[in-house]
């Protein structure tokens, strides 16, 4: 099997006395969807923050394609091929869809913005992902939650990332929008991307994940093969009631 596209080794992060992450290892391959689940406060957001360059870990190593990297900022992470969609989506509400898609990476002709090319590419990109917006020239603030999310995901795909990190993507979506989102994740996977999805909705991520990693109190409390893990096993690992059962690839206590 090929080397992991993204790997984290013994990553730790504390906020004051609170340990948000404690010796967490993650491996992500191309063509793979890794779901990270856990209660709130389990360290999901911190883990995503570390992967996306939004937070600096106190300890541990991060490697992209086996080369050690330091993810100092989201922009640096993106330059290493790791794109993120934050839970708040990080869109400027006053800018329109095209402006948001290309924000920080505008196309230019000479020294001026090339609006025509950007608008054209925007339609193509949104079309590929089957993201529907009334017009690419409406301010993002006027779009629905699902549309905004589609825009945020589309933006993360500009610049051909290897890894895409999605933080709590289904939190604010209706069922139809969730369906569209999950189908979108499948599409990302078949494009060859490594996808990390965090969620507290087990059902949603279980539908598209290849592997499921359970975080509990900042530690890995089990890692499961999604095709054989049962909801009960996963729930047990989330709540810490029982030691993980048959589906566990790797138990938290085993290391």
């Amino acid at each position: 099997m090929s080397a992991p596209v993204l790997s984290l080794r013994a990553v730790a992060k504390s906020y004051g006395a609170a340990r948000a992450l404690d010796g967490v290892d993650v491996e992500l391959h191309r063509h793979e969807v890794l779901a990270v689940i856990g209660d709130s406060g389990a360290g999901k957001s911190t883990l995503v923050g570390v992967m996306s360059g939004n937070q600096r870990p106190d300890a541990g190593e991060i490697a992209v394609d086996d080369r050690p990297v330091t993810l100092a900022s989201p922009a640096v992470a993106r330059s290493h091929g790791i794109a993120s969609v934050f839970q708040d989506l990080a869109l400027a509400p006053n800018l329109d869809v095209v402006e948001n898609l290309f924000l920080g990476a505008e196309l230019t002709r000479g020294r001026l913005l090339d609006e025509v090319s950007m608008e054209k590419q925007a339609w193509e990109l949104l079309g590929q992902l089957a993201v529907r917006v009334p017009s690419v020239r409406v301010p993002v603030g006027a779009l629905s939650a699902a549309q905004r999310q589609g825009v945020a995901i589309a933006r993360s795909l500009l610049g051909d990332p290897k890894v895409i990190v999605l933080d709590e993507p289904t939190a604010s979506l209706g069922i139809r929008q969730t369906a569209e989102f999950l189908t979108l994740v499948e599409r990302l996977r078949s494009r060859g991307l490594g996808v990390v999805v965090t969620s507290h909705s087990l059902v949603d991520v279980h539908a598209v994940a290849d592997r499921i990693m359970v975080l509990r109190l900042g530690r890995v409390n089990g890692e499961f093969d999604a095709s054989v893990a049962t909801q009960e096993e996963l729930l047990a690992a989330v709540t810490g009631v029982e030691s993980p059962g048959n589906g566990a690839v790797r138990g938290g206590g085993a290391r």
Partner: peptide, 18 residues
């Protein structure tokens, strides 16, 4: 028409609910 991925071995009531 709409498609939605489901978890493996999902339960009937959960699937029908969705």
């Amino acid at each position: 028409e709409q498609r939605m991925p489901l978890a493996p071995d999902h339960r009937a009531d959960a699937g029908l609910d969705r």
